[in-house]
Design a protein around this nucleic acid. Sequence first.
DNA 1: CAACAATAGATTGTACACAATTAAACATTA
DNA 2: TAATGTTTAATTGTGTACAATCTATTGTTG
Lengths: 150, 150
Amino acid sequence: MASSSPQSAQNSLLKLENQLCFPFYAVSRLLTKAYQPLLHALDLTYPQYLVFLLLWEHGQLTVKELGERLLLDSGTLTPLLKRMEQKHWLSRRRDPRDERSVIIELLPAGRALEAQAGQIPVQMLDKMQMTPAEIAALRLTLNHLLTQLA
Amino acid sequence: MASSSPQSAQNSLLKLENQLCFPFYAVSRLLTKAYQPLLHALDLTYPQYLVFLLLWEHGQLTVKELGERLLLDSGTLTPLLKRMEQKHWLSRRRDPRDERSVIIELLPAGRALEAQAGQIPVQMLDKMQMTPAEIAALRLTLNHLLTQLA
DNA sequence: CAACAATAGATTGTACACAATTAAACATTA
DNA sequence: TAATGTTTAATTGTGTACAATCTATTGTTG
């Protein structure tokens, strides 16, 4: 009854090597580290790069909209956006039509980074060494988990 | 030629929704948040839980061994382990045979948490709502990425 | 319209992460 | 064995994350 007893089954699930969540945690950090040399050339951190992905596409967004899309709250975004403002990449100003909202607008210096970042996605895909089929399957699983957990 | 031109292909890869790494980043944080109510009952954070998974299995490990297995360095582990030491969950002492190493040993109060944590893995699997086939495929992909990026 | 509720950000405090540096102990070798 | 190099943690400094709280603004309703 060894491996099928409740006690040992429970213990085996409490081993690091049998965890499913730890690889997510580890891969997420390793991916950020893989971005690092590419982003360092642009003086960017990974969360700041994510903000830029949204601003390059939309030009301007409120803090609330950034938070909804990145799943980050103002406690994280406010200081991060202040640092990006100090580098003149974006501007922060209250929405005159609703003074509760803060509009984050891309500035020329921030727009200029888009071209420099153009090669980053392919370089990352190269580092990951995955087949298109693997990538497609992974997208499905990650999207499932996103909707399941969000 | 619109969508196949280098410029637009590059731009589409710079959209958040087309990112493969962002879902990893988001899911990893959502998983940590999903653990939170379960771990809060034990007064644990997720990284501290990971340390316990190793200590419950091995009883004692050096900081170096913990770092190798969790992919964390001393800058993260030292303060984390000091907090766990303050709660009398583990002890920190230099290895007499090699004073460079610090041995982290599980204490009774830390061992006692193992039983209370026994239900956490199944509760997390329940939250994820994945089929065994999906889980198996995901394990393969995550392990591939771990070896590819580590 | 006044009271109350809801919303959007900012702030505070705690805990990671990690690059870079430092310090002590151990290993190697000329 | 003395000098040099390597290894292991600790330290320092910066940047997220996030819970909890606070403030100002807007919306709702009696």
